[in-house]
Design a protein around this nucleic acid. Structure first.
Lengths: 341, 341
DNA sequence: ACAGAATTCGTAAACGTTTTCACTTACTTG
DNA sequence: CAAGTAAGTGAAAACGTTTACGAATTCTGT
């Protein structure tokens, strides 16, 4: 009883007493057709509950209006927000999203890419699991328009849209300095990642410009997470501290720091001011109140879609690099102190 | 240059010097074919970078191996976790996910349902935006196997998988009682929703069994969010309190309560013990430490897929209601007190 | 009222697969 | 070695659309 056979264009044609080409014309609307027949056909479609079969259509038009989205984890708050905006915006533009998680696994990422290719997506947005995952995906990139998101590929000949990571840490460091902090520890997570490198560079550059001594503490871990932050901070807090503020390279790390601080009896912001990066929803929660650098996720999402659609619609289009501006978000985790000097 | 024409089964056939039917057989593997030809064909496919076109395949097999997932908001932490598990598990079973947000909008939900229908999904998982009005989806339900998730449809003849909401609030209330609380306020969010009703019932039933006086404070708002919780609690805290513990119907509400409490100078857990429901990731964060009732999301996700696949593969299968067990998660937001009596 | 133009519609091919059916081969077996 | 069976392969139809092409109809202006 579940098997209610789907009604096709031919069924409509039979009832309407026209050829099925005419039905197609009435529906797609782009071809010329008589006004009375169009109305008649549309009415019958309605009555019979017809819905167009996109697959069949795609077979002949060679366009699926399908977009692939590969994220590391949808349940990573940064990704889920991005995914939300991308989905909504893509739908607005007539595209449907196929979502896949790569789970930070490069082989998985490759497989998923191939899968989506087989699904004939018109284009692909990928939040790479690793900034050198570009190398692994290279063979596929000629097969489908792709835009990278959330990672900076530097001057590689591929489209990407991301935030100005350098500027983010730069203005954050400036802010901490303006609060009176003269000894700021940078708390990073991944050596060798371009994105991370840029964040670290922004911090160091600001330190230089402000006459501060930069100190970097980082793990070689492949990605940031609350647990990683917790582990790292735990170790850190065992040794005596010489800094008054910490700049974490990602909000998730900062959250881990908060946990470790609590355990170690260190108060934030009384003993240490803490700054994050991303402005995930968690950061704004009442008790968390994490000052941070906001990535304009909605803009990143819609921009990624725009860039992609441009690429899809104009095969001769080159690649583009869009770098959006971050915003400083002041919150309770940072406080003003008197410079000791 | 982007337009690298995709290689089809016919191209392979030409190179291999066989008919394209043979190529198909070599790939799908289910038909009989000579061992040497199979290897030869597969080798050539590999060399030429062939990937099967799922759309074309689906045209003839009438199976797309596509699953639709409709959630209210992927960036709602409960949903994003669910989506993650569903995607991963579905992929494991050979299905690809098409994700759509309904944004708590019933008309939107309908449109999206229709859209996915047109995309020929084999089945549909939906976290309804409103459990009252499954009515608007009714006309579609005969067209595609569907399972509802996260909402209890009571005894409607449709499949769903959800947590035992009644039991969740029941054991939560018991726990608060065991800590010495004798005056527990239930802080709910949506009148008329079955899910909410069950949670409220669990609380009231426990109160009755424990000899406590139930008190319910609720808004008619359509869904729970941190902002709603904040608003509600703000009002509540203006009046004098007679309770020592609050049981929020959802973690997001509880988070809002925390914010309002902070503003009102009320300490948690010193002044009030607070309990949530869902165990979203936020709840476990260092400073939040929200005691709550955990929904087994991973199990819900995979179970939903299992139920759906069963329905897909056996058209004569009826519907099933799966009610999974919640778990009490003890955390710092609740503390022991001495009963005044 | 008639030539010609414009409009509307039907026929058929095409998209890339799977699968039935029938036809070759090759392999058994007595 | 004949005959029967098994195994491998090709030809062609089918899935539900869109669209180029051409035929038929209606409209325009004189």
């Amino acid at each position: 009883m579940q098997k209610a056979k789907r009604v096709t264009i031919k069924d409509i044609a039979k009832v309407a007493g026209v050829s099925y080409a005419t039905v197609s014309r009435a529906l797609s609307g782009n071809s010329e057709i008589g006004e009375k027949t169009r109305e008649m056909v549309l009415r019958i479609c309605d009555e019979m509950g017809y819905t167009v079969n996109y697959m069949a259509r795609s077979m002949v038009t060679q366009r699926t209006f399908l977009l692939g989205l590969i994220v590391t984890h949808v349940n990573n708050p940064f990704m889920s927000e991005l995914a939300y905006y991308i989905e909504m915006y893509a739908r607005e533009r007539g595209y449907t999203l196929m979502l896949c998680n790569s789970a930070h696994d490069i082989d998985f990422e490759k497989k998923v890419f191939e899968l989506l290719l087989g699904r004939q997506v018109d284009g692909l947005i990928i939040a790479p699991s690793d900034s050198n995952s570009y190398q692994h995906l290279k063979p596929y990139l000629s097969k489908v328009p792709t835009v990278f998101v959330g990672e900076n590929l530097r001057d590689l000949p591929e489209s990407y849209v991301t935030v100005d990571n350098f500027r983010g840490t730069y203005i954050g460091t400036e802010y901490l300095h303006s609060l009176g902090h003269r000894s700021i520890l940078y708390f990073g997570y991944r050596k060798g990642s371009v994105t991370h490198q840029l964040r670290a560079d922004g911090y160091m550059s600001a330190c230089r410009d402000l006459g501060l001594e930069p100190t970097v503490y980082e793990s070689g871990l492949p990605f940031s997470s609350v647990e990683h932050g917790h582990q790292m901070a735990k170790q850190l807090f065992q040794k005596p501290r010489s800094f008054t503020a910490m700049f974490a390279a990602a909000d998730s790390l900062a959250l881990g720091v908060m946990g470790a601080a609590e355990e170690a009896g260190i108060r934030i912001p009384e003993d240490i001011s803490l700054m994050g990066f991303d402005n995930i929803t968690y950061a704004g929660l009442p008790r968390i109140n994490l000052a941070t650098i906001e990535q304009p996720q909605k803009a990143i999402g819609s921009m990624a879609v725009d860039v992609l659609l441009e690429k899809i619609n104009d095969a001769s289009a080159g690649y583009s690099h869009k770098i959006l501006l971050p915003t400083l978000i002041k919150r309770g985790s940072c406080r003003k102190i008197l410079p000791e000097a």
